[in-house]
Write a protein that binds this DNA or RNA. Structure first.
Lengths: 136, 136
DNA sequence: CTGTATCCTACGCGATACTG
DNA sequence: CAGTATCGCGTAGGATACAG
């Protein structure tokens, strides 16, 4: 429904070989980047690496996430086709979440982001300390 | 200003070779990921690719960013050692922003995220449409 | 041009309670 | 167990005005 935006969706964000992509607010890239940039999506995708996890399992693993936000986040990811939701008709209910093929391709990138963070956290800590010291 | 987090930073986020990284809220990875996940940082880093840009140039390029948020974002990135700030003592003032060597290493990852987004925006749009249609 | 200082609102998100 | 529904707060961030 809200697809019918008369707004011209920027189809080509890359000009030639240069990576000068579109920065308009209504750019698809921005839309998706915002999703990735929310508080939990990235965590969930990173965690859902080639194995499926149950709702409660995710909730226990991700420190600090509320029931509500886990649900909301999973729904968004499901809507984006990144995560699959499988309901087992048993009692008590059991729901498994896993990455879709599309989700897997994103996971690779996410993972490299996490890896980068792990590799450089010390440098960042040092930089922060220096900055704070200098501005004292 | 008073950013003095006395919170114990978790030192080891990686257990062995497994990529089961720490998900605690006070984990460094989470701290940095949160920074990356804010509304503008990612955009700025992506834009600052191997060339320096002036304040106004950034502001014009990033659609929708306010003066305040650009300043705040740049300060954070500078504090994290990802972006360098060069003030030219001329009048009117001229300030150039550029990626530091550390920032460049992050840029590569960010760029792959942007590229992924560009490559798969159609799939996501389709997935969303299907999801919305199904839940009608 | 490149900021900084206030003010103020929207909404992300947590807490809690309830349901199938 | 796996949600949904409500309420309410904190704060990210926009608007505006002022300054070096």
């Amino acid at each position: 429904m809200e697809e019918g935006t008369s707004k011209e969706p920027s189809h080509s964000c890359c000009t030639e070989d240069a990576f000068q992509w579109d920065t308009r607010e209504d750019c698809d890239v921005r839309q998706i980047l915002d999703r990735i940039g929310d508080k939990w999506s990235l965590l969930v995708i990173a965690l859902l690496d080639n194995r499926s996890m149950r709702f409660t399992e995710l909730k226990k693993t991700i420190d600090g996430i509320s029931q509500r936000m886990l649900t909301v986040t999973l729904r968004q990811l499901e809507r984006d086709g990144l995560v699959s939701r499988t309901v087992h008709p048993v009692v008590p209910p059991r729901v498994d979440y896993a990455l879709t093929p599309l989700g897997v391709t994103l996971h690779a990138t996410i993972q490299s982001l996490v890896t980068w963070t792990e590799s450089h956290q010390t440098e960042i800590a040092v930089a922060r300390a220096r900055y704070d010291a200098a501005s004292s």
